[in-house]
Measured scan of single mutants.
Amino acid sequence: MGMPNRKYADGEVVMGRWPGSVLYYEVQVTSYDDASHLYTVKYKDGTELALKESDIRLQS
């Protein structure tokens, strides 16, 4: 078993793309699913969504 190939840690605050949009919002990573390679993130309004790594970026 190798290390999970994840870029962002639980609790890390990053920018997540809103689905169907080009806009990124501040989100907190809450979990990562090794099987689906999706991150569960929480937006400031409390919305929780699963995002692909390509829809997440570090805060500038």
Rank of each mutant, 00 (worst) to 15 (best):
P4C: 13
S36R: 11
Y32R: 01
Y32G: 00
Y39I: 01
R17Y: 02
P4N: 13
Y8T: 01
S31K: 08
V27K: 00
G16M: 10
Y8G: 01
S21D: 06
S60L: 13
Q28H: 07
V13M: 13
T40Y: 13
P4R: 04
Y32N: 00
A9C: 09
K42M: 12
Y43I: 07
D55P: 00
E48P: 04
Y8R: 01
P4Y: 08
E48Q: 11
D10R: 04
D45Y: 03
E53Y: 05
I56D: 01
T47R: 11
L58G: 13
L23A: 10
V14N: 00
Y43C: 13
L58M: 13
Y39T: 00
G11K: 04
D10M: 07
Y43T: 14
E48A: 08
S36Y: 08
K52P: 13
S31Y: 08
D10G: 03
E12G: 03
L49G: 08
A50P: 08
A9E: 09
Q28D: 02
G16P: 01
T47L: 07
K44W: 13
M1D: 15
D34L: 08
W18L: 10
G20C: 08
R57S: 08
K44M: 11
K52C: 11
D34P: 11
Y39P: 00
D45E: 03
Y32F: 09
Y39D: 00
R17S: 03
A50H: 14
D34M: 08
R57D: 06
Q28E: 12
L23M: 14
Q59G: 12
K7Q: 07
T47C: 10
L51A: 02
P19F: 06
G11R: 03
K7R: 08
R17H: 03
D45N: 10
D34E: 14
D45T: 05
Y43S: 10
D10P: 08
E12Q: 15
A50G: 07
R57G: 07
N5W: 07
L23K: 11
G20I: 02
L49V: 10
E53F: 05
S60T: 13
Y8S: 01
E26F: 08
Y39E: 00
L51K: 00
S60F: 13
D55R: 02
D33A: 03
A35G: 09
D33T: 03
Y43R: 10
Q28K: 12
M15S: 05
D10T: 09
G16V: 14
Y25E: 08
D34R: 05
Y24A: 02
K7C: 06
E53C: 04
Y39F: 02
Q59C: 15
V29K: 00
G46H: 05
S60E: 12
V41Y: 01
W18K: 11
R57P: 02
M15V: 05
S21A: 07
P19G: 06
A35I: 14
R6A: 04
Y8W: 09
P19N: 06
G2L: 08
Y32H: 02
I56F: 03
I56M: 11
R6N: 04
V22D: 14
E26T: 11
S54G: 10
T40C: 10
K44E: 09
S36Q: 10
K7W: 04
D33Y: 02
Y25L: 11
Y32W: 09
K44D: 06
S31W: 07
K44Y: 10
V14E: 00
L38A: 05
Y39R: 00
M1S: 15
H37W: 07
Y43N: 07
Y24S: 02
E26M: 12
Y24P: 01
L49P: 00
Y39W: 02
A9D: 07
G2I: 08
T47H: 06
I56A: 01
G11M: 05
E48V: 14
N5A: 14
G2Q: 09
L38K: 07
D10S: 06
K7V: 09
K42A: 07
S36V: 07
S36I: 05
D45I: 03
D55W: 05
D33R: 02
M1N: 15
V41P: 00
W18E: 04
V22F: 13
G11P: 01
L49H: 13
L23W: 12
R57A: 09
V13K: 09
T30Q: 13
D55N: 05
E12D: 12
L51P: 00
Y43G: 08
K7F: 05
Y43L: 14
Y25P: 01
G16W: 04
K42C: 08
V22T: 14
L38I: 10
E26A: 10
D10L: 09
G2H: 08
S21P: 01
V22P: 11
G46Q: 04
L51G: 00
G20V: 02
R17A: 04
V27S: 03
V22M: 14
I56K: 00
V22S: 14
Y25W: 08
M1E: 15
A9K: 12
I56C: 02
D45P: 01
D55S: 05
S21V: 04
G20P: 09
H37V: 03
W18A: 09
H37C: 13
N5G: 14
A9F: 10
V13T: 11
S54L: 07
L23C: 14
Y25F: 13
G2C: 08
E12K: 06
A50W: 14
